[in-house]
Design a protein around this nucleic acid. Sequence first.
RNA 1: CGGGGUGGCGUAUGAUGGUGGUACGACUGCUUUGGGAGCAGUUAGACCGAGUUCGAUUCUCGGCACCCCGACCA
Length: 414
Amino acid sequence: MKLSQLFTKTLREAPTDEEAINAKLLVRSGFVFKNSAGIYSFLPLGWRVLNKIADIIREEMNAIGGQELFMPALVEKKYMEPTGRWDLDVGYYVNEKRKAQNEKQEQFVLGWSHEEVLTTIATKFISSYKDLPFSAYQIQTKFRHEARAKSGLLRGREFMMKDLYSFHVSEEDLSQYYEKVAKAYHKIFERCGLKSIYTLAGGGVFTDKFTHEFQILSDIGEDTVYICDKCEYAENEEIAKIKNGDRCPNCNGKIEEKKSIEVGNIFNQGTKYSEALDLQFTGENGHKKPVVMGAYGIGLGRVMGTVVEVHHDDRGIIWPENIAPFKVHLIVLDGHNKEADKVYDDLIKNGVEVLYDDREDRTPGEKFADADLIGCPIRLVVSKKTLEKDGVEIKKRNSKELNIAKIADIKKQL
RNA sequence: CGGGGUGGCGUAUGAUGGUGGUACGACUGCUUUGGGAGCAGUUAGACCGAGUUCGAUUCUCGGCACCCCGACCA
């Protein structure tokens, strides 16, 4: 991608209506645009990052047998009524204009979770223990009426979420899968450059049972966790039986209180939804039983915002390589576009993702500042200085070290 | 949902119950090119609605939006 063609621009100043670092940096650098409180557009750079996160999630979900599908955002009343979730104060309710005005009665809720929809679908296909277990997921926009949207991408009213649901013959089978998902989640966050803490928590409107959250330690987080300094056993504040200074129930280490961001959670839902929606299977003994379910969520935008909170400096974002919008940010100085064009073309041919600052009306300072702000892992510079050595300057975003590589050798150096 | 804050070019500010300036940014042109360069020019502003008043950006009331704290939540 050539920066001269990119329709977004970086802003010299941080937006005044944002306080959170993730929002300031992502808006300034042109990754996202705030349309309303808690409602963001993902612009070309931001959309690339979001898609990389989505691809990592897909790979890990597919690896544990998850089957990707896509469900409606308009969820009809009949789906939500049997579970009593139609009347919760979570959703945005809609109808066609005439009906909404005349009857003041909503027929649809914009989907904020899809247990009911998928469970209803499953009743058409699942009837025997031989049909189980199975798991399916989607990556889709969720709509939730947040009393208070805040902290940039960390808490929105509309946000991209991966929701996986699993269906089992028994609690034992579910718990085995639950553990598998937990491992997959740790992998996902690790690949995104985040160290996740597995935290015991309550279930909110999703289940009465205990659940687990994946927390990233960060001072901007709205959650508080109590975490062991040795084995990293952790409990969420809501349900914590342990406190600051206590001894860890597992390893006798010291418990500390920390702020954190919840980027994912997993739920044992038991038979709550299968009973309400009549999803049953016939067992080997010929008797019918309700299907046992689990649900597992990850907020993609929240992951993106969290990464920025964790990986930045006073100049800008420092993207982990796996989810950076581009691996390389190529800068040309002194008007040597011909030589830089060639470096660009060669890298593209070799499958390297390059953001190329080919702008001719920008000073070196502006180009360097933009590269630091946008935060691609590797910066290359082609200039009079480097061409004297028939080379290209290489610098990593997370290091101060400068090296010159021969043009012919660049690919090897990346 | 309770509490607090804010609301004038994109940003920061000056003045003002009576013709809304300035700086930075952005844009155009020329000159520049190793850490946000220079000159010239251009652009662009009172959240909405009522009230008081001859006259409201300014005063009053009511909305709305955004930010922050809390409650709640994923």
